[in-house]
Nucleic acid binder design. Structure first.
Lengths: 226, 226
DNA sequence: TTTATTGTGAATAATTTGGTAAAATTGTGG
DNA sequence: CCACAATTTTACCAAATTATTCACAATAAA
């Protein structure tokens, strides 16, 4: 299990990150300021750190300076737009990556995966396996019977959403909210169309999964017992 | 018993949610505004909160901000479409899920189950078992003797309603109200027809349950002792 | 530009649903 | 035990609902 230290004084952001990283399969060590972070680091061996630059007691830059004395793990700096001025830029170069707030969960995950790869830390690769279908979240690639299948984004996201909890019914509303977002004004039929496209793709490739309609409710990724 | 705090100033919505969550087996703590909610939370340990964003005295966002200081439970925000503007979006990210009004009771239940799963709060088993009949609420599937049975929605709901309290008599009115809703204009015979359909389906599959008529009153799902 | 992706609307298909009425059952009083 | 009324069961049909599919336009990517 890959452990990630997350230091941010804003409980909402901390929570936001925690939830997303946890969902992605990481273990999160949370800290609300620099001192807290250092204390936690004494007891926990983390493989990566995500650090907000603005924090009370001990700010992010000082924290990083301290960490660098003893630790050699990749660090991602969180920063508000325009917060990094030239003087700090030299420092920023020392860190491994930075992310400007507000950022997307997806973006953070992507950076983390990239850094872990670069550092050859073997992240428990996030692969959802359902039957002989492997869904590689990192690479946006699906493998069926060792054959790779490249799906368009929306179809991939839909598959991923369903595959996270196989055999469980998701309503169209749920799927739309989680894939297209809350402000999507469009029609529910959109989901149907993408389901149809997924069905067509998987049609002759595998019998292990089935996109099942639950009339009046929604859709399920059904696993077929062999 | 999973307790859920529901904060909404509209008594109709509060009632609507309360009824549905209660029927789904949750215990509901209702509050009509933010302050009320906080007061209730001092005395009750809730596992999840459903919060309307527009409330008097203390609006939903402030309430959530307060809750976050001391509590770590998943929160579902109720919001009208377009009500979340950019400034609030950062906050929204901090919460766990949101639902756009108007929403379906079923949809709310789905979200709640999903969040409870994500937080590993063991939600009361989502499988109702009566004899050798397993009713899987998440999957909308019924299993009899390891054989799966897919029921049409209304039949499933009827079975579910009866199976929640086996050996208890439900009047047709009660069943109609809880399945079809109080606005249903139709005939009581509708229940009979669906009972008949259920009987036909389970006819050769199991002897463990029986749909019994209580003349002049209603129906029971009778369990047969072996 | 060419190609691929994505969402929409509309036609079509499939299934579910509710009502109806006749048949069957049940309970009651004679 | 029988007739009768009340109630329930059942089969069937038509309407309503819901899902599938396709073609196309808009947009984004190559």
């Amino acid at each position: 299990m890959t452990k990630i230290l997350v230091a941010d004084d804003d409980p909402n952001i901390l929570k936001f990150i925690t939830i997303n990283l946890t969902e992605a399969g990481f273990e999160v060590i949370g800290a609300t300021d620099g001192r807290d972070a250092l204390r936690k680091l004494e007891n926990e061996v983390c493989q990566l750190a995500v650090v907000d630059i603005m924090m009370p007691y001990m700010d992010g830059l000082s924290l990083i300076k301290e960490m660098r004395k003893t630790l050699d793990i990749p660090i991602i700096i969180l920063t508000a737009k325009g917060q990094i001025d030239d003087k700090e830029k030299g420092f920023e170069a020392g860190t491994d990556d930075y992310l400007v707030k507000p950022f997307e969960a997806k973006e953070l995950l992507f950076r983390i995966e990239a850094l872990l790869r670069r550092y050859n830390i073997d992240t428990d690769k996030q692969v959802i396996q359902v039957g002989d279908v492997h869904i590689d979240i990192d690479r946006y690639v699906v493998t069926v019977n060792k054959k790779t299948l490249k799906l368009p984004l929306k179809e991939f996201e839909l598959l991923q959403a369903l595959a996270t909890h196989p055999d469980q019914v998701f309503t169209r509303e749920h799927l739309i909210d989680s894939i297209w977002g809350i402000d999507f004004e469009g029609d529910n039929r959109t989901v149907d169309v993408h389901i149809k496209r997924l069905r067509t793709r998987f049609n002759n490739l595998t019998d292990a999964i089935k996109f099942t309609t639950v009339r009046g409710v929604g859709y399920t990724l059904e696993t077929v017992d062999t």
